[in-house]
Structure formats: C-alpha cells, structure tokens
Amino acid sequence: MVAVAIAAAVLLADGYSVTERAVAVGSVTAMAVLYLSAARPLILIDHHGKRSMLVSVAYLLLFAVAVAGVPVTTWLMFMIIPLFFMLVSLRRAVALVLCANLIPVVLELRADPGGILIDLVIAAISTAAGLCIGVWITRMAEQSEQRAQLIAELEANRAEVARLSHEAGAAAERARLAGEIHDTLAQGFTSIITLLQAVDPDLKDERLALAVRTARENLAESRAMVAAFAPSALASASLPEAVRRSAARFTEEAGVPATVRITGAERGLPTRAEVVLLRAAQESLTNVRRHAGAREVAVLLAYSPDTVRLVVRDDGRGFDPGISGNFGLSGMRSRAADIGGALAIRSDADTGTTVELEIPA
C-alpha cells in the first residue's frame, strides 16, 4: 500500500523529468516485488540470516536510487524501516536505519549544500523515531514469544500432572481390586482345597479329585489376576527379571518348560510401559496353561532404540484369533493401544500360537 501511494505521488509530482519519474517508480515497483518474492517469506519463517541481510541491503540500494530520482520517495522509509526490524537482528536493523536516514542527507548535500542543517534535523528526528518504534516492537515480539513458550510449558506440565494423576488413580484402583480378589476368591479356593483334602487326603474319589484340581486351577488364576492388577514384581525387580519370574512360576504351576531370552540393551522404561509388557507376558502364559496344551513355551523380550517387543510363542493346539472371545486378549489389545503399541496374534494347529506386542519406548 505504501509503494502504491508513493508511486502515485511520484507520477503526480511536478518538476521532474520522465526519466527521473521512471527511475523512481521502477525502484518502488522493485521494492514491492522484492517484498512479495523474498522479504515476506523470510519474515513468515522468522529468518534472520544471510539471505535476510542481502534483502535488506537490496532495499537500501533501491531506496537510494528512488530518492536520487525523485526526493518525495523519502516517504518510503515508512515501509523499509519496519522491514529492517522484521528481517534482521536488532543491531543490524539499527545500522540499516541509520544508513537509510543518511541517504537523503547525502543526496541533498550534493544538490543544495545550503539546506543541509534542516535535513540533518529531520534525519535525526526520523532516526530517533524509527529506532524507538523498531526497538519497542522488537521487545514486544520477544516478550510475546517468551509468554507463548511459558504458556506451552504450563500446558505441558498440566497435561503431565493430569496423566500422573490418572495413572495414580488407576494404580490405586488396581491395588484395591487385587486386595479384594486376594481376600475373597484366593482365600476361598484355598479353603475349598483344604476342606476337600481333609475329607479324602488321598483323593481316591474321582469327584473330589476333580474338585480339588478345579479349585487349584482357579486359585492359580486368581493369583495371576492379582499379579496382573498389581504387578508388585516390578517394585522389587526390573522388567526382564519380572518376566523371568513369571515364566518360572508358569513352569512350576503348569509343568511346561518356559525359556526367556532378552536381546538388545536393557534400559528403564516408563512404569506404564513396563506394566503393559509384564501383564501381556503373564496373560499369554496363563492362556497357554489353560488352553494350549503346549509342550514348551519361549518368551522373547527385545529392546531396540525406539521400541520394545515382547513375543510369547508356544507349540500348543492353537486357536482362531478372529473368533476368540478371550477377555485377556481384548485387555491386552486395549492396554497396548492406550500407549501407542500394537498387538499381533498368529495361531494355527500346526505351529501353535505366537503373541507379539510392540510398544514405543
């Protein structure tokens, strides 16, 4: 808008030749094109490097040419001074403003040395006003950026506090459910086993033996549920050690050998990620014990720079993952999705079942 207004003023001013008008209008037009093609894109990306300095120098040269042609184009300073402060650092912008205000003085000195005093006064006022406005705008922009950073940090801290509060609440609820299961179901199954064995210590009665086996299986399941709700194993051991203990307990309870292999560089993970991995291992082993009829199980915990992968493979009878109504698998999928992970299940009667969980960590 400034360029259009000044170009119109140049065309309407009296006392200048066609050549002088053409030079001045050409310089103003070049400034407008330079703004659209180079200055504006640099301002939008907040670039203060070499390219921005070259564009500023080009504005200074075009301004000198325009003023040399038609002095009324001195009003272009209203356009170029703000651009200097937006394009380059504060120190360089100050130097460019000083140069821009000296150009009309030098040109006037050549044309009319007698009027130099008033030109110097005008230049001094213009320089002071330009510097004050430019410095004030620069400081305001810096303060706005600092406020924006502070707001972003506060929002991030608020989100982190909300996440930690949610995790703390979920952990408390899991601990409560684990305590209730331990105090009711687990204790009840233990009492049933004790009472049945008191009636028939040798379990010669087939029905009593079946009842004891069923109670023991459900006792083991309730213990697994307690471990899943409140993974106390992670409180006293690392994730790899907790997985090894779960595999050892599985072997003790099911009589099926389970090997554990750890690859990659072990490292600490967020508690939420460790809980998801440990629960997936426990749930997979529980499913093998209950349904697979496997002869052996292999567990892999693989650390990579960006992810951690858990693989539980058995050689059991397999199943159709598409029609399985296993609540444990649904829970694994949900927990994996909550932390951006993915669960894959491959199973058939010939090769058994492979459960693979990969999470970013």
Results as ranks from 00 to 15, higher is better:
Arg174His: 07
Gly316Met: 10
Asp350His: 07
Ala123Gln: 03
Leu54Lys: 05
Ile6Lys: 11
Leu109Phe: 15
Phe78Thr: 02
Leu185Ile: 12
Thr29Gly: 09
Val33Tyr: 03
Tyr303Trp: 13
Ala211Arg: 03
Thr251Gln: 05
Ser334Gly: 07
Phe78Trp: 12
Ser144Gly: 10
Asp183Thr: 14
Arg92Trp: 07
Glu20Cys: 01
Gly255Phe: 02
Ser330Lys: 07
Met332Ala: 04
Glu241Val: 10
Lys204Ile: 01
Ile6Pro: 01
Ser334Cys: 08
Leu195Gly: 05
Leu301Lys: 02
Met77Leu: 04
Val97Glu: 12
Ala302Thr: 08
Ala66Ser: 14
Leu12Cys: 04
Thr194Gln: 06
Ile43Tyr: 03
Leu131Met: 07
His47Arg: 09
Glu221Pro: 06
Val260Ser: 12
Ala258Gln: 05
Ala215Gly: 08
Ala215Glu: 11
Asp202Asn: 06
Gly318Asp: 02
Gly49Asn: 00
Pro305Lys: 12
Leu11Asp: 12
Gly341Trp: 00
Ala224Cys: 11
Glu155Asp: 13
Thr190His: 14
Gly114Asn: 12
Val312Met: 05
Arg279Asp: 14
Thr286Asp: 15
Glu356Tyr: 01
Asp338Arg: 00
Thr19Tyr: 09
Ala302Gln: 14
Arg279Pro: 10
Val4Phe: 14
Ala220Ile: 10
Met86Lys: 15
Ala242Asp: 09
Ile339Ala: 02
Val243Ile: 08
Ala349Met: 00
Met86Val: 01
Met77Gln: 05
Glu356Pro: 04
Phe85Pro: 03
Arg346Ile: 02
Arg40His: 11
Thr354Leu: 08
Thr351Arg: 07
Gly264Arg: 05
Ala186Leu: 13
Pro257Gly: 09
Ala39Met: 13
Gly26Ser: 10
His48Leu: 05
Glu253Cys: 01
Gly340Asn: 04
Pro201Phe: 13
Thr73Ile: 13
Ala254Ile: 01
Leu234Lys: 00
Ala247His: 10
Met53Glu: 03
Leu107Phe: 08
Ala152Leu: 09
Gly134Thr: 11
Leu310Phe: 05
Arg346Asn: 03
Arg216Glu: 09
Pro104Lys: 15
Met79Ser: 08
Pro231Tyr: 00
